[in-house]
Design a protein around this nucleic acid. Sequence first.
DNA 1: GCACTCTGCAACCATCTGGTTGCATGGAGA
DNA 2: TCTCCATGCAACCAGATGGTTGCAGAGTGC
Lengths: 111, 111
Amino acid sequence: MSRRDGDVVEVFAALGDRTRQDLLDLLARGQGSSSAALAEPLGVTRQAVEKHLRLLEQVGLVTARRDGRRVAWAVRPETVRRSAQWLEARSAEWERQLALVKAAAEKADGA
Amino acid sequence: MSRRDGDVVEVFAALGDRTRQDLLDLLARGQGSSSAALAEPLGVTRQAVEKHLRLLEQVGLVTARRDGRRVAWAVRPETVRRSAQWLEARSAEWERQLALVKAAAEKADGA
DNA sequence: GCACTCTGCAACCATCTGGTTGCATGGAGA
DNA sequence: TCTCCATGCAACCAGATGGTTGCAGAGTGC
C-alpha cells in the first residue's frame, strides 16, 4: 500500500464519524461557515466543532480562509470524489482477484 | 441523514484503519482465509485479526463460513462498491450545493 | 482416546477520541 | 480606547480502540 493509500485511510477514518458527516453536510449547504455557526445545529460546543474541522483540514476535506477574526470553512468535494474513486477501484480490484481465486479453486477441484 | 447513511458511516470507520485495509487486501488476494493465516503477514496476533474480522463482518465488509473447526473469511466487495457509490453521490451533491451557494453569493454581491 | 490445532472469549493495558470547561489573545465596532 | 466577539489552546474526563496474554472448548488426525 503506497503512501497515497495511507492518506486515503485517514480520509475514511475522518468520514467514519457522524458529527463530521453532518458538519460536511452543513458546510456544503452553506448553512454557516464559522465554528460557532456550525456548532448550534450540531448540538456540540464550538471547540468540538473546531477540533473536527482541524482534523478534516488535515486530511484535505475542508479548507480554511481567514476573514478578519473569523475563519470561513469550506468543503473540498474533490477530495471526497478522489476517495470515492479510490474505493471504487479497490472494490473492482477485489472482485477481479476473487474471480481469479475462485477460478483457481474450481480448477483444483476438477483436477 | 437516514439510517442507511448511518451504516455507511460505520463502513468508513471500518475502512479507516490500516490493519483492516491490509486485511481486506489479503482476503481479496486469497492469501489466507483463517485468522491464523492472516495474522502472520499482518504482524499482529490472531486474536487481533479476529477482532478486526468481527468488526468488518458487523458492517458487512466480510462474511464468515464455518469449515469444521476453521472459519473461512471472505471479502464482500459489493459493500465496498455501494459505499464508494454513496460517497461519489455525496461529493456530487456537495459540489452542486456549493455551486448554488456560490451563485447566490455572487448575486448578492451584484445587488 | 489422546494430543494437537483452531477458535472464542475475557481481562488487561496504553493510547486515542470526542466532547467540555476555562482562560487568553486578537480583530472589530462603537 | 474599550467592550464585545470570535478563535486558539490546554487540561480534563469518560469511553472507545487496537493490541496482547491466558485459558477454555470443539474439531480432527493418529
